[in-house]
Write a protein that binds this DNA or RNA. Sequence first.
DNA 1: GAGCGTATATTTACGCCGTAAGAATCGTCA
DNA 2: TGACGATTCTTACGGCGTAAATATACGCTC
Lengths: 216, 216
Amino acid sequence: MAAKRTRGVRAGLTRDQVLDAALALADREGLAGLTMRRLGAELGVEAMTLYHYVPNKTALVDGLVERIFTTAYSIGGTWREALSSYAERLRSTLLEHPAVLPVIVRPVVTQATLDAVEEMLRLLVDAGFPLGRALDSLNALTLFVIGHTSAEVAIGPDSSPEVDPDRHPLMVAAVRSGAGADDYDRFRYAVAAMLTGFDELSTGGDGRRDGTRPLH
Amino acid sequence: MAAKRTRGVRAGLTRDQVLDAALALADREGLAGLTMRRLGAELGVEAMTLYHYVPNKTALVDGLVERIFTTAYSIGGTWREALSSYAERLRSTLLEHPAVLPVIVRPVVTQATLDAVEEMLRLLVDAGFPLGRALDSLNALTLFVIGHTSAEVAIGPDSSPEVDPDRHPLMVAAVRSGAGADDYDRFRYAVAAMLTGFDELSTGGDGRRDGTRPLH
DNA sequence: GAGCGTATATTTACGCCGTAAGAATCGTCA
DNA sequence: TGACGATTCTTACGGCGTAAATATACGCTC
């Protein structure tokens, strides 16, 4: 396909193209499959060439994390709707790139995301949240979504060991009834619980004056 | 100290000793510093010797995760107290071994932890939680703790970029006021919010004496 | 045009890594 | 004693991230 490269012959790459290819490669082959040599091959270029667009591999992975977050923010509606849909959007974005999850440890705050954060803070403050609690709430919600989605991805069905029904009757009953089988249902329940808790603790329940209901 | 090893001269290791040393090494040097060669050196043994106690490096890391979880469970008191202190214990255990956090994606359910889980479920069910929601609540709380603690560890102070006070006044005000600076405070706020939300959504506020129909 | 600096790519090489294969030594039991 | 299994070391292989040096091509000034 591509003519063989020789020194100095431009490949016409950009940092964005490198990141795109890196994300695609990680999605396809897993995080361990993302190596500089393979990424280079993917782009028709030697590994060392990539170091002109990225200082080192750590920075490349950081770039992936940032990219994922900048596509996840969303706003609009009441504060409950905004936070709820933000949580769902973040979850689905993360699920699209499960390979990157292990290295996502915190929301990377970039210029691109600040606008959305600012608007969410505005919604919360207008609803009666003290400013500090508004920030805390946003933070906690994000961290929960990351944790939950990580667990969703980490396993398909269930890998629990054998359980003694006499010693652990509730465990057995819960598993038998299929409880916890639906990740998305569990996710929505937990998000609703967090939002309800935020409301109660930070506005004394005022936030629901507009008639918004916690779930469904 | 230790005389030089020769072939066949026993070092008297056990799997537990290997895991102990691995955890200590990871805590001291970071996850990337945990290599088979270095771990071997730590134990006065060649790298390949470790493969008699552990099938491969992945299994070794899995062993670390399991070990951390089995020491984190705790129970007692009301359901709120139990879940709250469980969250705190898990957090502090994770903080003691921050290097392992990136590979903790899910609570490893082992025989050792089942008793504690069963008792927590009992507390929740007695308080009026539908069984499925009890399990969901426990799960959500665990995942939140993992996510939150990961973020705590991932950063010391703050590395936010420069923020334009005109575009993002709330952001600036929040940071200036020192909001979100205290990780532990933020953690407790979020846990309290979750518990309040669980209560509201799963028992109707304070124990299902009114027969409120729970979700599900 | 000619000449030259700068950006872009490659080549080569070094020291790590996980681990497969096989040889060496030990304790134990017949 | 001799055989055997358990334990350890030695050697080796392919792959990794990346430092250093080198080669090519484009865009600028004259």
